[in-house]
Amino acid sequence: MTKILVINGSYRSDGITDQAINVMVLALREANADVDVVLLREYPIEFCLNCRECTQQKGSVPGKCVQQDAMQALVDKIERADAYILASPTNFGSVTAIFKRFMERLVVYAYWPWGQHSPDFRKNNEPKKKALLVSSCAAPGVLGRWLYDTHKQLKTTAKVVGAETVGTLFTGFVSQRSQPILPPQIQNKAKSLVAKLL
């Protein structure tokens, strides 16, 4: 059974991002995938301390963080998963602050000894897993995808954990109403995209 890990960086319960994830999760479960959804808004992750203690050990296994929070359990989930859905709406031209906090803690996936100018990512030489990227913005979808950093940051996150991006769901014009509803054509695209993870 394929294990899919969903990491959702939306602040808003039942907003566009949650609605898109719900459609995808339902489709994956109908295809007998094992799906685990992590809502970062409910997940206790502290800020990275930039101590780089976790980056000093060689090898493909993620380093150990000095923080005593739930990030280690999330790294364990990342390691066990066969594929990912990484999601964040666009806030101020970027992923949300909670998704960025999560991204920064992924430094455990880097080997970066003192004196070395830049990190080597631990998963670069391993077989790639698959990832779908989900985002939205107030601007037109195509424009938002290219103007803002959200898509780039989600793609970087996938790469760091050892995944290749195989599909993207980017919804535009999401600020037209206070209670947005995921359009039927986007729901259909969300359903069709999940096949790329299986």
Rank of each mutant, 00 (worst) to 15 (best):
V35T: 04
V61Q: 13
P140A: 00
T55K: 03
L86Q: 07
V35S: 02
P62V: 02
W146L: 15
K128V: 00
L193K: 00
L182H: 08
A31F: 03
I16A: 06
Y148S: 07
Q179D: 15
L198E: 09
A195K: 15
L39W: 08
K155W: 12
L198W: 10
Q57M: 13
I85Y: 06
L49P: 01
E164D: 15
T90D: 03
V37P: 05
K58G: 05
L198Q: 14
L39H: 14
N125G: 08
G167A: 08
G162M: 10
A70N: 07
I98E: 11
C48G: 05
Q185D: 14
I21F: 05
T17L: 10
L49E: 14
V25K: 12
A97G: 09
F170M: 08
L86T: 03
A110L: 04
S13C: 01
V166K: 10
V174Y: 04
V95D: 04
V66C: 09
S178Y: 12
K159L: 15
F173M: 12
S135R: 10
Y148I: 05
A70K: 07
N50R: 00
I78S: 03
G63P: 02
S178C: 04
A131F: 02
D36E: 14
A138N: 07
L28I: 09
Q179R: 10
A190K: 11
P44K: 01
T157P: 09
L147Y: 07
T90G: 05
K155M: 11
I186G: 05
T90F: 03
A31I: 02
N22L: 08
R52K: 09
P184C: 11
N22H: 10
V174Q: 02
T96E: 04
D69F: 02
Q116M: 14
H117Y: 13
P127L: 03
G9S: 11
R41N: 15
M1W: 04
K128I: 01
E46V: 13
Y11W: 14
E42R: 07
Q179K: 14
R101P: 00
P127E: 03
A110N: 01
E53K: 13
D14S: 12
F99K: 07
L147H: 11
M24W: 07
N188S: 15
R101L: 06
Q179S: 13
F102I: 09
E30I: 04
D14N: 13
E126N: 00
P184I: 13
L28W: 05
Q179C: 09
P62A: 07
A31G: 14
V25F: 07
L5Y: 05
I4S: 06
P127Q: 06
T2V: 13
C48T: 04
V194Y: 02
R105G: 05
L86E: 00
D82E: 04
I85K: 01
A27I: 06
K64P: 02
Q57H: 11
V61L: 13
K3M: 05
G115H: 06
L154H: 10
D36Q: 15
S94V: 08
S135C: 09
E126W: 04
R145D: 02
F121C: 06
S13K: 14
G162S: 10
S88R: 02
V166L: 06
L74Y: 10
N22G: 14
V107P: 06
F170E: 01
L28V: 03
I98S: 04
A158Y: 06
M103W: 14
K123A: 15
I21Y: 00
K152M: 07
T150H: 08
